[in-house]
């Protein structure tokens, strides 16, 4: 049973993770970009480049279109808030996260959806051709990616008999290292979803401004200065959150148990290692793949969706 002291500690820890993710997220983006640069034989801008970009953007004057409505102006804050919250409720260092009682995996998918709906609406607000194009494509990508993500999370929920993230991670981390066949399918599906939802190659390209292929960039074309900074930061947080989900579901080993505060340092070191590996992996994936046509994307994501459902079915059939 949790004592008052434990609860206080857990809340402090929750706040610490909130702070940690928001500071660490741009670093992860920088790391992925740097790895890509190395793989492409460039020297790269360094892992700290995203922070410099953010600083530059925050100092600039915001320019918004004449007909921008209130929706356009609040959206960056909503998107940033949602992504921050999402990244903060995924147990990656320790499983004591009191806020996860208020929001389970379904709510986590809900947070992503909330941010997505707002950013799509904001993209349509100005009424340029690019904005609505981006919004339409974003919703197109997500209507398959979102259920696929939900199915991946459900497979893990089924194994641990809970939809609460700490419980899921706790169960998965403290079993012997057995390979769940259902989770293998889920992992494959999850990688596809991660690529699609974070606007990575082969579905989208975060570094392109080539008009015909943009998805995410088309949506945020009208944003500048602090609004753009918040959205970029939110994108970093989203990538961080997704990689965290991947770590939490598929390689949670080494995470600190409930009340095991002495295990924290080791857990943090392990986490950093996992993040670095995952970021490098992402860079490799993006380097070896080519961007696909927009109408191939639904097929690609349909594959993810089917894989995830298959994973769930296998869990039902084999009970593993």
């Amino acid at each position: 049973m949790m004592t008052e002291y434990d609860l206080l500690f857990a809340i402090l820890f929750q706040l610490a993770q909130l702070l940690l993710v928001v500071l660490l997220a741009p670093l992860l983006t920088g790391w992925v970009n740097q790895c890509q640069a190395w793989l492409q034989n460039r020297s790269g801008a360094g892992v700290l480049q995203p922070y410099r970009v953010l600083r530059k953007l925050f100092h600039k004057d915001a320019v918004i279109a004449h007909n921008a409505s209130w929706l356009f102006r609040v959206t960056p804050y909503i998107v940033f808030g949602c992504m921050w919250l999402a990244a903060a409720i995924i147990p990656i260092i320790a499983v004591d996260l009191p806020f996860s009682q208020a929001a389970d995996v379904i709510a986590l998918v809900g947070v992503f959806a909330l941010a997505r709906v707002f950013i799509s609406l904001a993209a349509m607000d100005i009424g340029t051709a690019f904005g609505s194009l981006g919004a339409r494509r974003e919703m197109l990508v997500s209507f398959l990616a979102e259920p696929a993500l939900l199915m991946v999370l459900f497979t893990a929920s089924m194994i641990s008999h809970s939809t609460q993230l700490p419980r899921i991670v706790d169960t998965l981390a403290h079993h012997q290292f057995i390979l769940y066949p259902s989770l293998a399918f889920a992992a494959l599906a999850f990688v596809i979803v991660l690529l699609a939802e974070n606007a990575r190659i082969p579905v989208d390209n975060p570094s392109t401004h080539l008009e015909l292929t943009m998805i995410h960039e088309a949506m945020i074309l009208e944003y500048s200065a602090r609004h753009l900074a918040l959205i970029e930061w939110a994108s970093s947080l989203k990538l961080f959150a997704y990689i965290s989900i991947g770590i939490a579901l598929f390689v949670p080993h080494g995470i600190a148990e409930v009340g095991n505060w002495a295990g924290l340092p080791l857990a943090i070191v392990l986490l950093l290692l996992k993040l670095m590996l995952a970021g490098a992996g992402l860079a490799v994936l993006e380097t070896v793949m080519a961007k696909m046509r927009i109408f191939r994307a639904p097929e690609f994501l349909g594959t993810a969706f089917l894989l995830a459902v298959l994973g769930l079915l296998i869990h039902f059939l084999l009970g593993a």
Binding site: A113, F143, L144, P147, M151, F154
Partner: peptide, 16 residues
């Protein structure tokens, strides 16, 4: 599980 997947799909399309 198939039914749950279809529900999730319908919900995501509803957002679209």
């Amino acid at each position: 599980p198939v039914a749950a997947a279809v529900i999730a799909l319908a919900a995501a399309l509803a957002a679209y």
